[in-house]
């Protein structure tokens, strides 16, 4: 498996990580190296094996429908790089 530059650009876009055009080649090489190494899993026979999705076989606990959180606008916004009037500010989104 060897990733081309277009694929790397697409992954970078999906990941929202800017990759300069000049670096695409290098990143493609690194990712391809790792993917090639991972490919060895293909040899493992997994016919009729159910996937293991989590780290535990515990049962999920449910919380009661009780309001016991929220009402902490100041704490929620305390670390915001651009907080205004109780809102988080971001560059204008044009729909």
């Amino acid at each position: 498996m060897s990733l081309d530059k277009a694929t790397v650009r697409r992954i970078a876009t999906l990941s929202r990580i800017e990759v300069a055009d000049a670096d695409l080649e290098v990143v493609a090489g690194q990712l391809s190296g790792i993917l090639n190494w991972i490919e060895q899993l293909k040899e493992v026979d997994t016919t009729n094996v159910a996937p293991m999705t989590g780290g535990t076989d515990l049962k999920l606990q449910w919380r009661p429908d009780v309001v016991n959180d929220g009402d902490k606008m100041e704490q929620v916004l305390a670390n915001a790089p651009d907080g205004h009037d109780g809102f988080f500010g971001v560059p204008k989104v044009v729909e």
Partner: peptide
């Protein structure tokens, strides 16, 4: 399927 699902299945085998 080829990567993530496969890995989860192998994870089950390791378990």
């Amino acid at each position: 399927d080829a990567y993530y699902l496969k890995a989860q299945k192998v994870r089950a085998l390791i378990n």
